[in-house]
């Protein structure tokens, strides 16, 4: 089986990762914290190729919350890219954004969502939005390619204009369900 092909959802023709990149640029994002996810792979490549962006690959997603709180202390705008499972790793650290009133935009690729194959993804995937909202994050979903640009832009604006955590969840219907070669 072609491992690379399986891991590279969404397919190379999909334009919405480029729309996210454009929204990051339009909103002056220069620090990009991430734990890689296949759904973000094209966006990550765009960010790595951008000399104005500092990309920090994390060992766990909660590091990114603290990192971006530090970036904001230094007057720099950042974004946290992660998969839905990583939201669970962030829970307590999201307190920092709250207590300091730090803008904290997150762009989350969903697993455990539409047409999931892997049972292990379901618990955290189904809890992702509830967990974020329980920690005071404003959450928007995008399940169609044509909604991505507007939704990500809204999340970035909410975070930086109103000083709080905000997230866009990119649904699995948009990204494509990982099938482990079983489709």
């Amino acid at each position: 089986m072609d491992r690379d092909k399986l891991e590279m959802r969404p397919d190379a023709a999909a334009g919405w990762p480029d729309h996210i990149y454009a929204a990051l640029k339009a909103n002056g994002i220069t620090q990009v914290a991430l734990v890689p996810d296949a759904g973000h792979s094209r966006l990550i490549k765009r960010c790595l190729a951008d000399n104005e962006m500092t990309v920090v690959t994390l060992t766990t997603e909660e590091e990114g919350v603290a990192l971006l709180c530090g970036a904001w202390l230094g007057g720099v705008k950042g974004v946290l890219l992660m998969q839905s499972s990583g939201v669970g790793n962030c829970i307590n650290m999201l307190s920092l954004s709250h207590i300091h009133r730090t803008p904290l935009p997150m762009i989350v690729t969903m697993r455990g969502d539409f047409a999931e194959f892997n049972p292990a993804q379901i618990p955290m995937g189904q809890a992702t939005q509830a967990v974020l909202e329980a920690m005071g994050t404003i959450v928007h979903r995008a399940d169609r390619a044509e909604d991505v640009a507007e939704t990500v832009d809204a999340t970035l604006r909410l975070a930086f204009n109103t000083f709080r955590p905000a997230a866009t969840l990119l649904g699995q219907r948009l990204i494509g369900a990982k099938t482990f070669g079983k489709d």
Partner: peptide, 19 residues
């Protein structure tokens, strides 16, 4: 810091990279 246990060093990194 009053919270965010485990975040101090990473907050320092974000600031150091920003400035």
């Amino acid at each position: 810091l009053w919270g965010g246990m485990g975040g101090a060093a990473m907050m320092g990194l974000g600031l150091a990279l920003a400035q």
